[in-house]
Simulated assay, not measured.
Amino acid sequence: MNPNDIDLIRNARKGSTEAFTAIVRNYKNFVYRTVFAILQNRQDTEDVAQEVFIKAYRSLAGLRDERTFPSWLAQIATRTALDWVQSKQKNQTIELDSEKFVVNDDIHRAANIRLDLENALGHLSEEHRMVTVLRADGFDYEEIAQILDIPIGTVRSRLHNARMHLRQLLQDERGDNE
């Protein structure tokens, strides 16, 4: 977390909409990735991400320590996305952009790897996707346990199982394409 973010959070808590707008700008990709990991649908993710920031703005006064803002925001994002899933009660599928922009082989390869990974994440259970994305976002096991309100041993187990499943899915994908 950057020291400027702490100042922005303090100013936003005092009612500065400009400060909160800067916070949204700084954390929109983080919230989007977290929510998308659960919903696996771009349109719903955009709607839920907006709702996350509305909830964060309304609850900002309750944040006790500005340094915990990223995990606090991740918890709001996770819970809001899970509530959305429960309210929708339907299966979500990954939407892949139909347009491809290939500049050179390296970019093409990187794009294919990203699409393979997105596709593989879509095959994970919701629980495994959440721990994987939160870990990829840089949260340690203890923080993930707090965000998801589960024991740290469960985080370890889910992350291990998710990695094994991802490895198998990606190996299967590579084997099918060769």
Rank of each mutant, 00 (worst) to 15 (best):
F69T: 02
S125W: 01
V131A: 09
T34A: 13
K14Q: 08
H108G: 01
A77E: 08
G122I: 03
H123C: 05
N104I: 07
I107C: 01
K100C: 01
I6E: 03
K90A: 07
K14I: 10
W72M: 04
S157I: 11
G153D: 12
S157G: 04
L170T: 01
H123W: 06
H165W: 00
D65Y: 11
N26Q: 09
V85F: 02
H123T: 07
T78W: 04
I38N: 08
R13N: 12
S16D: 14
R58Y: 10
N161V: 15
N177M: 06
L82A: 05
R135A: 12
E142P: 00
L117H: 01
D176R: 09
R42G: 01
S87V: 06
A81E: 13
R79T: 08
I23A: 05
A111R: 07
R174C: 09
Q89G: 04
G62C: 03
E143N: 06
L63S: 10
V85H: 04
D116W: 10
K55E: 02
D140G: 06
T132Y: 02
T78S: 12
T21A: 13
G122S: 00
R167Y: 11
G153K: 13
R135G: 09
I107Q: 04
V85I: 11
D44C: 13
A110G: 10
D83M: 07
E142A: 14
H128F: 00
H128A: 07
D83A: 13
L170I: 06
P70Q: 05
V85S: 04
A56T: 11
A81M: 06
W72Y: 08
D172W: 03
E178G: 05
R109D: 08
M1S: 12
S98P: 02
I113C: 01
D65S: 09
M164A: 11
R13Y: 14
I76T: 06
H108E: 10
V133Y: 06
Q75A: 02
E173G: 04
A49Y: 05
D47Q: 08
F20T: 02
L124N: 06
I94E: 07
D83E: 14
L169H: 06
R10L: 11
I94A: 08
S71L: 02
L96W: 00
R64L: 15
E51S: 14
A110Y: 09
Q86T: 13
R42Y: 15
Q50P: 05
A77C: 08
A77P: 03
A145Y: 05
D47S: 04
Y57C: 06
E143P: 00
R33D: 13
D172C: 07
V52N: 00
N119W: 14
S125K: 11
R13W: 14
D140W: 05
R167W: 01
G138S: 03
Y57T: 06
F30T: 01
P3W: 09
E173K: 08
D83P: 06
